[in-house]
Design a protein around this nucleic acid. Structure first.
Lengths: 340, 340
DNA sequence: TTGTACGCGTTATCAA
DNA sequence: TTGATAACGCGTACAA
């Protein structure tokens, strides 16, 4: 259909080798020939066949990215920031991004690795990996470099990018603690997410060190708005309510706020609440949600960078942990303060 | 590195042809051989080389998707719903998705078309195309089937998916009109977006038919929260304020709400406001934002479907226009109503 | 500086 | 039912 280097060669009466070299600006070919070749290429509307190129060079220049549908349900979720970051970094380095979702039937039969291998992808980025994922063992021994966001798995070729969850939790807790809160509840993410464990451990340790940990104040959410709403209502039923709630995701914080408002609570006077993620919705909810902010785009970039460095043989870290920031808005109040 | 059909052939002492046929379950090969071949393939950890396959079959099984960085700035924007929809539809049909961003330097030299051609992509989905995009003429005459979301460009191989903007605007306006609003302002998106024109035209026509159009009440925003905020403040300065504001995006509505609240207005009593998109933030802002909802995932799916049908030679529509829905929350009030 | 010859891994054609 | 051979479009030793 479209012109090949053969066509160009024929047209000029030269060899395909010369054409190939000219097109790739090799230095063992005359500038004159280069010009002539490029001119004809233009005339013929020649377009290099990446597929052939990749076959012969045995290099796909491609990174795979897996997007889990269950995590994309709530669409203003973080995943898209990851993708934007990965994409930017990859394209900048002349790499293609092959995007896969895992709700298609594909992944039921084929593992990520298999999908990647068949396409000769040079590296892959995963996120939303659950601790009970059946492919984890396969990942650990992957010959392919893989960046996993937010799940720290040991493996020779496994790279890890995350936010420092402990620091994030500590910042949130310090803030609440200084405001005078002692009975602080936690609505955690689901237990199949490693970050849930990290955040819970940090939460518990923080309060234990201050003799204030109560296991009865920890509730098993699942990151979703609905679970935040549910546990918000449950908290309202308690005889001895906590004075503050730390939610392991903004979505849950938002759900809890909804429950509290419905019940007629005045926020933040009647309840302080703090989230995790800094979704854009946190800015609009009333009161503005104080939250631990993660830089999703940066995380995506780092995940790609780790892979790209490794592929290029540049030495690089195996783990990158970014520092979170506490975004203070209006959802928390000093415990003895009058209603504003 | 990894095993090829040659290795399998050698191991079994048969031809590569037989191996290829066996692996692809062709019916001119014995079941016995198939079993033996597959067993060895497993042993050798064989993985088909998609690249070679694509070269010889001259079929890439790939769709390109272009994500414009300028639109991804606000990350809970719509684009991601598009992507999720496209991805699901494509993967379901055994197609790969190649994702490109346009903030890399890539697109400065190379057009979408060129990028697509080189990779032998079979079709592409674009969104965020501006009316002044320098590549539009190239698009019109594209030999490659292209689905464009929200920008209707004529071309033999151009497909179009959008939401019925006129109906959306009419639904919003009907709602405001029935609430008694007559002086209705519009904060529009930027003029390089075709939907801005469509929404403006519908808005103007609606009011003209009722002898209520005032060009002085139309403000040129750019879809962003900031521009909504800016025009919200400007509206406050007016001697004769409108009683309602129709914003061409939720982000702008959210920005305007922010401005109104800062000025001490009580919403919706002092000002009714209605948006467009139904971002998740609209649910959390107070008062809940009444808005025209678009189904981004469906739009993405349709865009992919159009391409896939065309590629497969199945006859299909060239344009798909989805119906929007009015999501009524609490940001609008009857004009003479007491404060609730 | 240019060209010849081969190979990348696979499918397809045709003959055995 | 199986196999030999060519071909897809390109890059690269190596020779000229």
């Amino acid at each position: 259909m479209t012109a090949t280097i053969k066509d160009i060669a024929k047209r000029l009466g030269i060899s395909v080798t010369a054409v190939s070299k000219a097109l790739n600006d090799k230095d063992d070919i005359s500038d004159q020939l280069k010009i002539r070749v490029k001119k004809v290429a233009e005339e013929l509307d020649y377009s290099a066949n990446t597929i052939a190129k990749r076959l012969v060079t045995n290099k796909s220049n491609t990174l795979g990215v897996f997007m889990f549908s269950r995590v994309s349900q709530k669409l203003d979720s973080f995943v898209f920031q990851f993708i934007a970051g990965i994409l930017e970094e990859a394209n900048k380095n002349d790499y293609d991004i092959l995007l896969f979702s895992t709700d298609s039937d594909l992944l039921n039969e084929k593992s990520y690795i298999k999908l990647c291998k068949e396409r000769r992808v040079e590296g892959a980025v995963l996120f939303g990996v659950r601790l009970d994922d059946p492919h984890i063992d396969e990942l650990k021994s992957s010959p392919l470099p893989i960046s996993i966001i937010d799940t720290d798995i040991e493996g020779k070729n496994i790279y890890y990018v995350s936010t420092d969850n402990r620091t994030g939790v500590n910042k949130a807790m310090d803030y609440l603690w200084r405001l005078g809160h002692r009975r602080i509840a936690m609505i955690n993410g689901h237990e199949k997410a490693q970050v849930s464990k990290f955040r819970y451990n940090a939460f518990r340790q923080y309060l234990r060190e201050r003799d204030s940990f109560e296991s009865g104040l920890v509730f098993p959410g699942d990151f979703s708005q609905e679970s935040g709403y549910y546990w918000g209502r449950e908290i309202l039923k308690m005889e001895q309510r906590p004075t503050a709630v730390f939610a392991a995701s903004d979505l849950m914080a938002l759900g809890a706020i909804q429950a509290f408002k419905e019940a007629g609570l005045h926020l933040p006077h009647d309840m302080s609440i703090i989230g995790f993620d800094n979704l854009s919705s946190s800015e609009f909810v009333e009161p503005g949600l104080t939250t631990v902010s993660q830089d999703g785009i940066k995380m995506g970039k780092e995940a790609a960078k780790l892979l790209l460095d490794r592929i290029a043989g540049r030495g690089s870290e195996q783990k990158v942990v970014l520092q979170p920031e506490l975004i203070i808005r209006d959802s928390c109040q000093s415990i003895n303060q009058e209603r504003g």
